[in-house]
Design a protein around this nucleic acid. Structure first.
Lengths: 342, 342
DNA sequence: TTGAAAGCGGTACCAT
DNA sequence: ATGGTACCGCTTTCAA
């Protein structure tokens, strides 16, 4: 059913029908009501592509999904979906097999110029992220999830990774730990750098020398957590505490500790960052896992919200949101053992 | 830059330019080359929404993302993205907060009639799934990931859940296990039913009475695995083996077994279904986890491929793909203990 | 308050 | 091999 046909049914002009459905004020209330009812009854829905062509709006927000099906990503998107439910705005996932943000430039470029989306969300930026520069140059609306150090004004939403790591690390130091390993995210990403900084600052504030060998970078996998923790635990003197970048990493660390016959919360303390997944929770681990926590889903929901504001005309330079991160202490952290023997 | 303008630059008509770019055969090879080069140089790209309007194609495949950010889902989508990379076809994620497939009917209906996508993928169908009936009635192209028992002809891709569970269960029985718990997926989904059947058939073939109390249904979370396993392990006589529906479930089961002071692979055997996640692998667990395996990412990639075929004109009734599932034995399975004492 | 008609930016039919 | 032009289905001036 097309507008013209539908309008004829009603004995009205396409113009009036369009206005009635579009909520324009100049339409008679009676008329509007009748149009709305008939639209439902006859199942008339405007052709979205015609609307898009004429209005220039796409009705979708773009995200780029890399090769790795990051579990964080799904949770974030699910949060976006939650917020966008009922808004008549979709999420467009643009495929790419490229992983590095530099390689993804063409994707973002295409996305921004193709008219398929009204805005995009940029993930895990680097301090000087090419994607941000590109989108800014194109004058295309975007929101960064995470932060960068670029001069380019842009909207962003981030969590306080630095504060999170500072608190986690400080807490461990206060418990007497001196050799604290940090298994961080991929090198080069701003969030990893922020975590590095929080970790180092905490050590420095408490007069503990920073040992670069105790910091490792990599993807958030169970395997990496395991392998790294195993190898750290073989060193002498061995570390007494681990800060893990993700729940998956923590799983690996837990296993490594146990496989060495050590006890978590007594011989080895562990704190991880928890993005709050419905399927894997720190309180259920044994022993329950102390964690810095921030909901990835909420971040997704709020991001969608901010993008909507951006599209509504709010200046990007006004949209900066830094979320605090809680530190939740559970059983995996305890006083440093008086003397660690390997 | 619009077509008209671009054509003027080249001293050609919009028609010829459109044809040259669209790859139509009747264009002079020289002309085509020149057009292609200039398009790149001048950065001309056809307005996608105009193309969509005139061709009636949307250039996107739809998926509906429920409230739960299922980790499986991300992996599946990532596989789709992999296959669609370079195809100029996007994935459109339609938000919904509704979980039940019946509640999702309006979403699918909207998606199918809105012109935003050319086809949709239906996930985790029930034996008699309303979504399939709806899409068929609408004459809208779709692929089912999973199976249903409806009479309605439709394209589908599924893994052999029944065979997987039959083999897993049979193997356990052959090892002498008699009380085998199955922690299955949500009740009512075809895949859960298939797994139930595989489990029951295996028991029956080997003359072991089916005990409905040993089967539980629910979502694939670590917590559920833990809680259920804990409670089963308190029973007397207690089970000697678990079949877990997912890796997350298996994590919970592992913890529960250990928390009871029992040893996996000796006191208790465990087999789980592994969808192959980059961040959590059965071979890294301790003890390494025996598993039925099928890559969710591959399924996503192949699904995208099949949707493309469907859109290319291949009849839906021809597209049926059932993937075998491997059983990979590792250390978590062993002979049943001669006498289980609680 | 309602309607007529000019686009939005392409594609594809029909000529040439 | 190339060009003219009638749509695709809707929104939005401009006029009434």
């Amino acid at each position: 059913m097309k507008l013209k046909e539908f309008a004829r049914h009603l004995g009205l002009s396409p113009t009036t029908v369009s206005r009635a459905l579009g909520g324009y004020p100049e339409v008679n209330e009676q008329t509007r009501k009748r149009v709305a009812e008939e639209a439902v009854r006859l199942g008339y829905r405007p052709n979205i592509n015609a609307v898009r062509l004429v209005t220039g709006r796409a009705g979708a927000i773009g995200v780029v999904m890399g090769r790795t099906g990051e579990f964080h990503f799904a949770e974030f998107m699910s949060g976006m979906a939650e917020r966008l439910d009922g808004e008549d705005i979709d999420i467009l996932v643009s495929p790419t097999t490229d992983r590095d943000s530099t390689d993804q430039i063409p994707i973002y470029s295409r996305l921004a110029t193709s008219g398929r989306v009204d805005a995009v969300v940029v993930h895990s930026p680097k301090p000087n992220d090419e994607r941000i520069a590109l989108l800014h140059d194109l004058g295309f609306p975007f929101l960064v999830h995470g932060r960068s150090e670029t001069e380019v004004p842009h909207a962003w939403l981030d969590i306080d990774n630095e504060g999170a790591l500072r608190r986690a690390t400080s807490h461990l130091v206060d418990l007497g730990h001196k050799r604290i390993v940090m298994i961080n995210g991929p090198a080069g990403r701003t969030f990893s750098l922020h975590r590095d900084k929080g970790y180092r600052d905490a050590l420095q504030e408490r007069g503990i020398a920073f040992d670069p060998r105790l910091v490792a970078h990599g993807h958030f996998t169970d395997e990496l957590g395991f392998r790294l923790a195993r190898s750290y635990l073989e060193q002498s003197p061995r570390p007494t505490a681990f800060v893990a970048g993700s729940m998956m990493t923590a799983l690996g660390v837990y296993r490594a500790v146990r496989s060495r016959g050590l006890t978590i919360g007594r011989d080895i303390s562990v704190i991880a960052h928890d993005d709050v997944f419905p399927y894997l929770t720190p309180e259920n681990m044994i022993p329950s896992l102390s964690a810095t926590r921030s909901s990835m889903r909420s971040a997704g929901a709020r991001s969608a919200d901010l993008v909507l504001q951006l599209l509504g005309g709010r200046p990007a330079s006004e949209i900066h949101e830094l979320w605090p991160v809680e530190l939740i202490l559970r059983e995996s952290t305890g006083p440093a053992p008086t003397e660690a023997k390997s």
